[in-house]
Design a protein around this nucleic acid. Structure first.
Lengths: 227, 227
DNA sequence: TAATTTATTGTTAAATTATTGATAAATAAA
DNA sequence: TTTATTTATCAATAATTTAACAATAAATTA
């Protein structure tokens, strides 16, 4: 690998490509662009990128398909794949991490953040590539390796109980977890805590992640809302 | 040693070359210089150096590429390769050791240190190329063969437990290792030690390596921070 | 249906508990 | 012995729980 990082940029929008290329080249990354998944796959063949920035929504061959294609080729085992996603892409059924992506960057993209995020991603050890332990729904991702929650482009650190509670709820979006089940799973069957304990933790999550991700089902429990 | 040690110096900066050549020749090494990787490869052909001092950042063919080229040629199996690296080279993704380097020297280079380091490297047994047993991240390298930790140009000797703990944590930068996993991996599943044991070792590492490389994730464990 | 009661959850701050940091002393190993 | 490792203690800090009361929704009653 040359010391300069090679980035393959795959997006169908001319102006996005142009903007990103400009930003990245100014940081002295080596950049190559492609206008769709198919094109990207072909160009990667000879370019051998260290990092692939991949738009989710594209004609011809979209981001998910392209990602799957890359990930099924051992040649790209050491290549990081980062999705560019719009916050509200409805159709994002299968999440990026499950397709083998290493991270994502939410649009609209701020150049400074993009650069710092790319650097941080490239710093991550190449050994554990594709061995991610992430539960995610839409732009909320719970990274159990790094004990971090990603909300869009923000990294949030949560105390243990809150982290576990979020992990549990997000593992089945829209599923209502009964209070007793939550207690069993997170506190354990032998531990007895007061009535308001769960509520307080939910409150903190609402505070830190966002109010409307967590909905109360009165008399039953809570769920993580699948928008 | 029976013959004089031959050193090939590869760096693109005129003044660095000049300075290093002066310093090394005064120590009666035989020195040849090259201004980039390609040039170095050609000159090595006839010069047959015992040691190659290789700058990471160069135009034409950079240090990493040059190192790979040397290492893929059995002719240089017995040749030591030492990187010259700036401390803050962001993009140093694959560490030198993984490319088959034997050591590195951090810039700015002090002549006295350079000389003593070269001598010490040349004293080392001519081990098989690419048989390194080093875990490294940035300028921290854990050399399991020599039981040494390199922090920039400092060689730090650690007692066994501290050494193993550091090895473990640095093997996956940013991954949070849970206390129980650390105990399992370093102390073994059957060994039971008190609650404060890990902490004390972490404290020593913070003392010896640096405070901010190790971060605590309360309730979970510790991680080596990927800057 | 509207008013009232009741059950459940939300909110907050304070109290409690758990976890870690720091240090020194004790034990084990070299 | 010296050095490494573990334990013990206590301080510092952060996480968690509780307690008190407000707000709200559901159920009941008028």
């Amino acid at each position: 690998m040359s010391h300069q990082i090679k980035i393959l940029l795959i997006d169908d929008e001319e102006d996005v490509l142009e903007f990103l290329q400009y930003v990245l080249e100014k940081e002295s990354f080596i950049v190559k662009i492609a206008k769709n998944g198919k094109d990207g796959l072909k160009k990667a063949e000879t370019f051998e990128p260290d990092l692939i920035l991949l738009d989710r929504m594209m004609p011809e061959m979209d981001g998910a398909e392209a990602c799957k294609a890359f990930r099924s080729n051992p040649k790209y085992d050491a290549t990081k794949i980062v999705f560019l996603t719009a916050r509200d892409e409805e159709s994002m059924q299968i999440e990026g991490f499950e397709l083998g992506a290493d991270d994502y960057i939410a649009k609209p993209i701020k150049s400074k953040l993009l650069v710092s995020k790319i650097k941080s991603i490239m710093r991550r050890s190449p050994k554990m590539a594709n061995q991610v332990n992430i539960v995610s729904y839409k732009h909320i991702a719970v990274d159990k390796d790094r004990y971090l929650v990603l909300n869009g482009n923000d990294e949030i650190v949560l105390p243990r109980k809150e982290f576990e509670l979020l992990s549990l709820l997000i593992s089945k979006p829209d599923h209502v977890f009964r209070r007793e089940d939550i207690l069993d799973q997170i506190w354990g069957k032998e531990v007895f805590v007061g009535d308001r304990t769960i509520d307080v933790h939910i409150r903190k999550l609402r505070e830190k992640i966002g109010d409307n991700y967590f909905s109360t089902v009165k008399g039953i429990g809570y769920k993580f809302v699948a928008f």
